[in-house]
Write a protein that binds this DNA or RNA. Sequence first.
RNA 1: GGGCCCGUAGUCGAGCCAGGACCAAGACGUGGGCCUUCGGAGCCCAAAAUCGUGGGUUCGAAUCCCACCGGGCCCGCCA
Length: 666
Amino acid sequence: MARTIRPKKQDQANPFGSFRRECETALKTGYLSLQKTSGHSLPDFDIVSTLKDPPNPTFGHLASSLSFELAKSQKRKPIEVAKTLAETSRRLAKLDLVESIEATEPGYVNFRANLARLTELTLKSVQLAGSEYGLLKTEAPERTIVEHTSANPARPIHIGTAKNSIFGDALARLLSARGHDVRTHFYIDDTGRQVAIMAYGYKLLNEPIPEGKPDHFIGKIYSVTATLVEIEELKKRLALLKKTNASDADIVAATKSLDEWVGIAADLRSKYPEEFDLLGKLISRDQDPETSIGELIRKYEKNDPDTNALMRRVTRMVLTGFEETLRRARIRFDEWDWESDLLWAGRVAELVDQLKESGFTFNKGGALELDVAKAVEKFGLREQLGVTPTFEFPPLTLTRSDGTSLYPTRDIAYTLYKFGMAERVINVIGTEQSLAQFQVKVAFWITGHRKEAEKFIYFPIGHLLLEGQRMSARRGRYVTFDQVLDETVSRAKSEVDRRSPSIPDEIRQRTADRIAISAVRYAILSVEAVKSTNFVWDKVLNFETNSAAFINYAYTRSSGILRKLGRIEQPKTLDLLKDPVEQALVLELSKFPETFSQATDDLNPTLLCLFANLLAQRFHEFYEKSDISHVTNDELKWQRVALVLAVRTVLKTVAGLLGLELAERM
RNA sequence: GGGCCCGUAGUCGAGCCAGGACCAAGACGUGGGCCUUCGGAGCCCAAAAUCGUGGGUUCGAAUCCCACCGGGCCCGCCA
């Protein structure tokens, strides 16, 4: 008679992991016995790593290739070694979750799980741990900062940046569920040129109250202002080039650049005629717009009260818009860090002084440069950073000749600042920043922050291309995150309207909202972060297999079953779930804890997308084949219900990790 | 010139870090089936891949190493 399995620590239940450990122990036992009988000592193998998922269920649930490793030193065929290993493991090890151990050609040792025991263990674990099932806690919790999005406040967030937001947010959710103390930070890059241009244009217009969404409103002002200023500058430069008899090449280049900007201006003018003409008139009255903008930057760096008021006011308006967009996508931040604060607190200056004292800087035309290459050689960082001996580290300009700071310098200071509050810092930034992120690490070594250098993680995001091209805000070739959300919600709404007319409209709207947000998030998360991919509407608007809607539909169907039943009873045991579709479903549930911890420790949310999709797929197969409400055997009915409940729990957990919201009806 | 990343069916994509039964998951698309049963946003079946190319290491390579090819990106007193 099977004794009842009672998992010890509910929050740490890991059914498939328990099976795996049993296999490991059995294999080790077999191995040690082999070592004894073979007379000569065998090399110490990493037995754990030889255990893999076999390619199909006929080979059991875990398989080891250890015999291949041993065959040589044993001077025997792998299959013979495997037979001995299987036989002794079977004979000597205490087996509970393992049903059988067999050797198969050409030399694998296959472990089959006792599915009855695994089913009982898994379903009971889910029942007891509930929404905590699978969320294995780390043994080394770390205070972790995830910085992501950090979009320049000059324009609305576009779908490319949204990829950073969605991955950053998912990472934070995963790490937090793993037991780390996670804070998300948004870095407000307000001391650069772009925000100054935006404030300049806004001031010229006499600081109007935004119509519509503030980030879109201000973004429009920024685009028009930046374009007009650029054209003014190019005209001046061209005139100067001609007057000084510059080379033809220079003149051609400047003319070409000017033509391009004029083209952009024409587009903007047709889109926003009023603002364009008004700003054009106002800017032409300014003797030297470039100087006005430069002055804004300088005054802001010095924290001049009037400039401060203007810059903060206009930036805050944009951030309100950002927050609104991000909130729609279920993304929130714990902290909003102003770059200007960093500057005013003297952190940047302090860093620059430290670097200066290190002896790794030099002066170039008044600007301060950091000799990165020298530092790399001095500290022998090539191996640390994983770069080849020929990798060239160009010097990094720390300060301009007028003494003002540059973004990379501020970023180093900022990352150090973050380490003041955390043991580990994760920067979610585009792949184009890889060199800059190397430089941050090198700067850490120079300033003696070696521990921080190790705990500093750059999480690269590959570009999201639009119709195969890079998005260009300047050329208006981009899709905003808001547009994507709007379009997806409206598509989802018409689907819900069509399929579920009986649901009240208010609920249909909320459902469409959830489906849409989840669809967008899933479409982004289901492709690995580092890959550059094409943004395609078809993928986002796909509500079929391998989409959030497919996963949600599994949840909806399970809700339908429970609704129809009306009441639920506990089954007496869990011994009737023997159908292959039921066992496949249980097996998937049993693997969730391992999948979760691997996805989290590898910082790979995409793994969980695959898991969610697979679980939903297994459920749909089960749903198709296994009846519940019409089944006459009550005990079987309640056992199946227990399975459905477990699937619902895990679906909900995994959805929560990815930031997907599930609807009971859709 | 130096470097980083990516290259898997018509398309999109997992597997690569930790090599093993790979005649390579899954999806979209294509072709064919399944509604008297818990919601068809579903299920079943079929066709479709020189794993960019060439070498090397290994008993064994999509996976590791080298070279090359193709695509993206970086090497700014922009951010």
